[in-house]
């Protein structure tokens, strides 16, 4: 049931990415190109997603626990640190170079083209490098 529902929710997400046009790097890049061929569509994607999520969360989070889990897993940190800002800034540079973000490219894998798979491989490589650098730094800062 957990697997099936997760698949169904992923399918709705992927359908949304496809319908909205966020699956298309050309459309995404044009949203950020205010000085050129500006396409404001992405603002409507973000707007539609935000309105539904903000209203939906208000109702959903009143429940004592999720339908198929014992508790809600929600980030509790509120501090703004350099990692967050630096990481987000770095992500934006990569997004601006490529036009793909993780949520946009995963559904694009289903198009049967090579570029999205190559892009996901590059993203995973970046994530692995960051993970291993961080676990190595943690170990050298706190030797067992």
């Amino acid at each position: 049931m957990k697997i099936l529902s997760a698949f169904a929710f992923g399918l709705i997400f992927g359908l949304g990415i496809a319908v909205s046009g966020m699956i298309d790097p050309a459309k995404v890049l044009n949203f950020f190109d205010f000085a050129g061929m500006w396409d404001p569509s992405l603002a409507f994607v973000m707007g539609g997603a935000l309105v539904v999520t903000a209203i939906g969360y208000r109702f959903v989070l009143k429940a004592p626990h999720p339908a198929l889990a014992s508790s809600f897993s929600i980030p509790t940190r509120r501090d703004i640190d350099l990692r967050l800002v630096g990481g987000a800034a770095t992500f934006g540079i990569g997004w601006g170079l490529s036009g793909f973000c993780p949520g946009g490219v995963v559904p694009a894998l289903g198009l049967g083209r090579a570029e999205p798979w190559a892009f996901v491989a590059a993203v995973v490589a970046g994530m692995l490098v960051a993970n291993f650098v961080e676990s190595w730094r943690m170990r050298s800062a706190h030797p067992a």
Partner: peptide
């Protein structure tokens, strides 16, 4: 770009 996205996120 993909590699930078991976590091950044």
């Amino acid at each position: 770009g993909g590699f930078i996205v991976g590091i950044g996120v």
